[in-house]
Design a protein around this nucleic acid. Structure first.
Lengths: 249, 249
DNA sequence: CGTTCGCTTGACGTCTCTCAATGCGGGTGG
DNA sequence: CCACCCGCATTGAGAGACGTCAAGCGAACG
């Protein structure tokens, strides 16, 4: 079997390796996965709710988000994804996608067939654990989002979201001097936080006036990290940055 | 290696088998996992946020929930768990638990060491997928909860929660004539839905008056399922009851 | 039989939503 | 190169859902 070897998945590899060192063989197995680089336009739908996707995808460039729609038409953004994130490993074992996946701006994603992921997970246990871990981390982020929306007011929710994105983007080297690209609209932020875009606008205006952060539709600059963390009640434990349990096999 | 064989994990086995048939060997491997039956009092904490658990657990009897606390002291219940659910497979790969796990009433849970779970996942791929699947399903339920809290009003949220619990409990045979045991307080419901207990009380009173459901602190009876589904905007797709992808290896 | 916890109900406050209008910047076509 | 347009940000005013404070009550439990 001679699979062509790419390095598109290296960002995911890097993410894995901060928590679990891989051998050269394991890395090679990951790189040997069949994969396809796809560049998308802004607001492209990668997976639609109700579909049966055959590929999972990793974000290479840009921001991707997942969302669900209530029957009233109101949209909830479940999570944002940054480069190096495997976005829908979830559908690997499901018949239908229970949510939609979209890009905010033009982005680059790498598609990997479900079948290959399952086979590799079985043949290379370290990679199986890596895939599993990624979905567990994802779930942990969702739990924090649940706490955020359920038990914090709009101000706090907003601050928390920016804290989280800053940390996650920093991890992949996309933050310089407290500022990072974030080409999302206030409506996106509102839909992620369970509030109206109008209210989001007022919260952001207040933050700006207080010299906390500046958010244009393109980028975000954090001026007072400590204050933002305090307002957002942000504690990065749930991001499990220190890696997995030491309990290796 | 002669491990003692119990049948405590059979409820989990049943849950798996509705979506993925296992061979006798695979079943035997699951049953051979080291396990310990533990009976708990009401409001017992199984895992505390910040701890490093060494065991995962499956619910055998009773209701278990997971929660997180904001720094203001406000509690968010992340999810409820019914018999047959593996509750904290999440911590298998994490250093610290990012949430607390508690029982509502006296319950029975089965503890299984993380180490054994990881080894088995590696040696028996079908079980590895089963564990993974369970955490993916859990994440799907969390996503729906996010939509529920973020984009539905209190009335709708409440109805949705009862719909979900009814379906999940029915699946394990714990619903008779539209009624099931649910020994949780209105404060618990409120904390799961991101509202105040007082408001929950008013919503429940309204439901009762309209002849929709009757909820005492002990059990719930659904009188008008169709109406409840409509109010709760409930669509069971996200519970993936039809099992996993047909894409087997 | 007292104490405690949870349910219930009322009055009032407020955070956030809805409706509505204006402004602005960037893309598009002439 | 300019004019038009459309999506998005912004701002105001009024409404409503839900929160807070407070008090009474019943059942379970020691």
């Amino acid at each position: 079997m001679h699979e062509p070897v790419h390095h598109y998945l290296d960002p995911f590899l890097d993410k894995i390796e901060t928590r679990d060192k891989l051998t050269e063989d394991e890395k090679a197995a990951l790189r040997a996965l069949p994969q396809k680089l796809v560049r998308t336009a802004a607001r492209s739908r990668i997976v639609e709710e109700g579909e049966k996707p055959t590929h999972a995808c990793m974000v290479l460039e840009g921001i991707v988000y997942r969302s669900k729609i209530a029957s009233t038409g109101r949209r909830q953004i479940i999570s944002f994804h940054v480069p190096g994130d495997m976005v829908d490993l979830h559908t690997v074992l499901f018949k239908v996608a229970d949510h939609t996946i979209e890009t905010v701006r033009n982005a680059a994603v790498v598609l990997v067939p479900h079948k290959a992921i399952l086979e590799t997970a079985e043949e290379v246990p370290a990679l199986g654990r890596a895939f599993w871990y990624d979905t567990l981390l994802d779930a942990s982020i969702q739990r924090e989002a649940l706490l955020n929306i359920g038990r914090r007011d709009a101000r706090s929710r907003t601050a928390h979201l920016f804290c989280e994105l800053a940390v996650r983007l920093k991890r992949v080297g996309l933050v310089t001097n407290g500022s990072f690209e974030l080409p999302i609209t206030q409506t996106d932020i509102a839909d992620a936080l369970g509030v109206t875009p109008i209210h989001t606008n007022r919260v952001l205006a207040q933050f700006r006036k207080q010299g906390l952060i500046t958010a244009t539709g393109k980028s975000v600059t954090i001026h007072d990290w400590r204050a933002l963390v305090a307002i957002g009640d942000f504690d990065a434990t749930y991001l499990h940055l220190e890696g997995p349990s030491d309990l290796h096999l």
